[in-house]
């Protein structure tokens, strides 16, 4: 991970109101824009690819297409919980500068629900200084008593594409 300059002011939250799919990762609840979600599939045989970082689990066969699968737990440095029968792969499609709409699978612990968020539900990501890398967060949503962390998939996957080895 690149060293970040703490003095740089953060850009305000880019999360827009709308529908989000929420899922669980390491006990926390996360949300991604529903328009980027293509489908949700049961875990399938993942073929590991040599020389990949731990968060790139490998590739799967999605009805004849080959797509990479990311483990967001490893990506965010969360402990890997025991596999459970609620785990699934959320297939997302993100347009990046490098590719127009590549499919990627995200391994998650459990899918929760689709929620509608209004402007007032969304707050900008709080400052954590250098202790926490928040570049990949769009914002925080309050739904009743719970908090959902909204992920910036464009940026997460865009960074994966550009990653220098």
């Amino acid at each position: 991970m690149k060293a970040q300059d703490c003095s740089i002011a953060r850009t305000p939250s880019a999360a827009r109101p709308g529908k989000y799919l929420t899922f669980v990762l390491g006990g926390e609840s996360y949300g991604i824009g529903i328009l980027q979600v293509r489908e949700i599939i049961r875990p399938t045989a993942i073929t590991p690819v040599p020389q990949m970082p731990p968060h790139i689990q490998g590739v799967i066969n999605l009805r004849g297409k080959i797509i990479p699968v990311l483990d967001l737990r490893a990506r965010f440095g969360l402990a890997a919980p025991a596999a459970n029968d609620r785990s699934c792969i959320v297939v997302v499609q993100v347009k990046t500068t490098e590719s127009a709409g590549m499919l990627t699978g995200l391994l998650v612990d459990a899918v929760e629900e689709v929620i509608s968020l209004a402007d007032k539900d969304i707050e900008a990501t709080p400052e954590f200084g250098c202790r926490l890398d928040t570049r990949h967060l769009l914002g925080i949503a309050k739904v009743g008593p719970t908090v959902k962390i909204l992920l910036d998939l464009d940026r997460i996957l865009g960074d994966e594409m550009r990653a220098q080895v």
Partner: peptide, 10 residues
């Protein structure tokens, strides 16, 4: 195609 994410790393 395995996609750029894989290809550029290996």
């Amino acid at each position: 195609n395995v996609g750029q994410m894989i290809r550029q790393r290996n």
